[in-house]
Amino acid sequence: MGPEELRAALAPALGPSLVGVEPFEGFAARVRFRREGATELFRAVHGLGNTHLSMVAGIDWVDHREVLYIVWSDAAKQYTLLSADLPADDPHIETASGVWPSANWHERETWELVDITFDHHPDLRHLLTPDGYEFRPLLRSFKIHEPEELEVKVRHV
């Protein structure tokens, strides 16, 4: 399924939430969407045969943040990239774990490393870092600590 077919399939369900569908190297297409239509997009993309969520990731672009979903279609043998821009001062988006249950841990990881909140997530807590860990290490604003300094902050949470 190419970008044009994908746009035709998604546009009726999403309306203005669909920002654009463009070609992307190695993928069926790259779908840009607004977070208001996230759940509708996930359901529509899942309905097109993309039954496997390969990964969720976040990028800190300093002026805004971006959340990425890579989904895989067994029938078409193709990946599709979904991405949404989020404002840096309020980065949150609806969870995808209702559509793809494997999003659960990916979103926990994205939340704790890039500080993107996933609304209505069933279990949003730390995955790789200890409970109560205050840092968001993959943000550009994160400074490398001296081990002793970090230890004091981590050990007593």
């Binding site: 790789l128 600590h145 081990p147 970090l150």
Partner: peptide, 8 residues
């Protein structure tokens, strides 16, 4: 050693 999650 200077990673955010490693015990030194």
């Amino acid at each position: 050693r200077t990673a955010y999650s490693v015990v030194p």
